[in-house]
Each structure stands twice: as C-alpha cells, then as structure tokens.
C-alpha cells in the first residue's frame, strides 16, 4: 500500500464486525473469515466477531479437521486475544437450538441474546459476512 493511501485514513477507527453463520469444513467460508480477521488486527480497528446460526459450530470443542487432511483452524480462535481481538459474541438462541452451551466452545465468549446481537450489528460501520 502506498504511504499516501495510508495517510487518507490514519487515525480513523471503524467498528468492524465479522459475522459467521456457516459451519466449518464443509465449505471454506469459516476459515477465510478468520483469515480476514487476523489481517484486520494489523489495522488497529475496533473489531468484533459474531457467531450465530450454524456459525456457532466453528467454535465447537474437539474439532480435528486433520482427519480430512484439512487445516485444523479451531485452535486459532484461542490466539485472537494475542492480536487484541477480544470481542467474540455468540448468540444464545443459536447455541440452544444446537444443544450447546458456552462450555462447549474452544474459547471464552460473550453469550448474547438475539435482540442484543441485533443491536450490536446495528452499531457497526463495516460488516463482513462470509
């Protein structure tokens, strides 16, 4: 990136939300969402992740995609804290519909109800969903 382009938004902080609604491994969306999240950490933005619908399966404990010869990326969610990405919101209704609780997830999250999730979404500047 050119210095000039960078200067255009230096100091500007936007609220970025990455919305995850798809299960992992069957398609590449969950992994590619995580790739953008990791890159976004370098831009010092206000980043949050939302997990709802089948997206909550991305955080399920005990995954081992290596048996499919695929990248086993679930442990990477635990590394996000090291990138100062600490806002992980998981929708309560989505967990309950799948017989899961926060105890079934690989990383500590904030469980929010659907109404709160809607408020969080409405509060963003940029929403990326994959």
């Amino acid at each position: 990136m050119s210095d000039e382009f960078e200067d255009d938004f230096s100091g500007e902080i936007k609220r970025f939300m990455f919305v995850n609604r798809k299960a992992p491994h069957g398609t590449i969306y969950a992994l590619e969402s995580l790739e953008v999240v990791l890159i976004s950490a370098a831009f010092d933005q206000d980043v949050s992740l939302a997990f709802l619908d089948d997206g909550v399966f991305q955080l399920r404990k005990g995954q081992n995609a290596n048996v499919l010869e695929m990248k086993n990326f679930a442990p990477t969610y635990r590394a996000l804290e090291g990138y100062d990405i600490e806002k992980l919101y998981v929708e309560r209704e989505s967990l309950e519909a799948r017989g899961m609780t926060a105890d079934d997830l690989v990383v500590p999250v904030e469980v929010v109800d659907r109404a709160r999730m809607a408020e969080l979404m409405a509060d963003q500047d940029v929403v990326m969903s994959f």
Binding site: R21, L52, D53, R114, M117, A118, E119, M121, A122
Partner: peptide, 15 residues
C-alpha cells in the same frame, strides 16, 4: 434456507 428468518430476527426497529 433460514437466512430470511434469521435476518428478520435481527432487523431491529430501524433495519
């Protein structure tokens, strides 16, 4: 799919 139903559940009062 449930995309429409899920979206409507998150539309809020102003979406």
């Amino acid at each position: 799919t449930n995309d429409l139903a899920s979206c409507l559940g998150h539309l809020g009062t102003d979406g």
